[in-house]
């Protein structure tokens, strides 16, 4: 069992390599297909009358080479872990810029994921206990709203209610810059700044997982083995938790795995609305500035994260469902 497991992991990692290569290649050409010249953003209005300067900058960033040459040289260096120099932050290697923002986004992601999955499963299971009851209806309506409200709009709404009207939480940013704090007060300050972004980011996925858990629970609860469990005289709570929920969670695990990728995509908008200095906002900034290496660098980091998340999902799936044979 263990041996086949590690072989499976190894195979999946090997399979991820061509996938990553394809992602880099497609993105490399895709972002260059969009109109807009990074030179405009790097040197601004002077680009129009100083041809020598334009040529200098083009040469400095290798933009004067034929596209295929740029591609192969990028690929070759990327394989060695060198993602180039950011056009916009032009003294800094892309990898440094991206990695400096990664911890903030990772924190947002982990919290958003936890809230979505834990609260989603809890609410979904709760709602399925008495279908069409008041609790279930409320959960359904909230779920429907969460499912249909775009995250940036939810973010603005949360700011309006919790920051402006109730004055409980800050509007945005990483920390209180007017009166910076240290020690425990700093941790509390940072946590306060995270509450609304996490809620905005997880809203959609919370709704999704709630609905999925509910539906799956209702389905499972009608199966014969539940009837058997009940007729054995098991406590209803045990029937729910140990028999029904465990099986109902299988599709939820799959969905949770995909959630990671969508959360990362959502972080672009949420981090922008909440002025949160993470990778998502960096991607937005890179896009506006046509910073090709920075955009690619972020996309590579994101792709690796998603590939790993899917791998973990498969492994977890194999653990909790013995019917699945990992091959």
């Amino acid at each position: 069992m263990e041996r086949s497991y590690s072989a499976f992991v190894l195979r999946r990692i090997m399979a991820a390599i061509p996938l990553l290569l394809a992602i880099i290649s497609v993105n490399f050409f895709l972002i260059r297909l969009a109109p807009g010249d990074p030179i405009t953003m790097i040197i601004g209005e002077a680009s129009q009358y100083d041809a020598a300067l334009v040529a200098d900058v083009r040469a400095r960033f290798g933009l004067d080479l034929p596209l295929y040459q740029q591609y192969f040289s990028y690929l070759w260096r990327a394989l060695q872990g060198d993602l180039g120099i950011s056009f916009y932050f032009d003294q800094q290697p892309v990898l440094d810029v991206v990695l400096s923002r990664l911890p903030q986004t990772a924190l947002l992601l982990v919290l958003g994921f936890t809230v979505a999955v834990v609260a989603g499963v809890f609410l979904g299971a709760r709602a399925a206990r008495r279908p069409y009851s008041a609790t279930d209806n409320v959960a359904s309506i909230v779920g429907l709203l969460g499912y249909s409200i775009p995250s940036f709009w939810l973010g603005m709404l949360l700011i309006l209610v919790f920051s402006l009207k109730l004055d409980w939480l800050p509007v945005g940013g990483l920390m209180d810059v007017r009166t910076p704090s240290t020690g425990l007060a700093m941790i509390v300050d940072r946590a306060r700044h995270l509450v609304l972004p996490v809620l905005a980011l997880s809203g959609f996925h919370l709704a999704l997982i709630t609905r999925l858990t509910r539906g799956s629970m209702l389905e499972v609860l009608q199966l014969d083995y539940i009837t058997t469990a009940r007729s054995k005289g098991l406590h209803e709570r045990d029937v729910y938790r140990r028999h029904a929920l465990r099986n109902a969670l299988l599709p939820v695990v799959t969905a949770a795995g995909y959630t990671v990728g969508f959360l990362l995509a959502g972080s672009v908008l949420v981090e922008t609305v909440f002025a949160y200095p993470g990778m998502g906002r960096l991607l937005y900034q890179a896009l506006i500035a046509r910073d090709f290496p920075l955009m690619l660098g972020i996309l590579i980091v994101v792709s690796i994260t998603v590939i790993v998340a899917n791998l973990v999902t498969d492994l977890v799936y194999g653990r909790i469902d013995p019917r699945i044979r990992l091959r």
């Binding site: 603005m156 700011i159 309006l160 920051s163 402006l164 004055d167 800050p170 509007v171 945005g172 940013g173 209180d176 007017r178 922008t272 609305v273 909440f274 002025a275 906002r281 937005y284 900034q285």
Partner: peptide
């Protein structure tokens, strides 16, 4: 980065 959020921050005194 977001002007809407900046106006909210101004209103709140952040």
């Amino acid at each position: 980065p977001d002007t809407g959020a900046a106006i909210a921050a101004l209103e709140k005194g952040e």
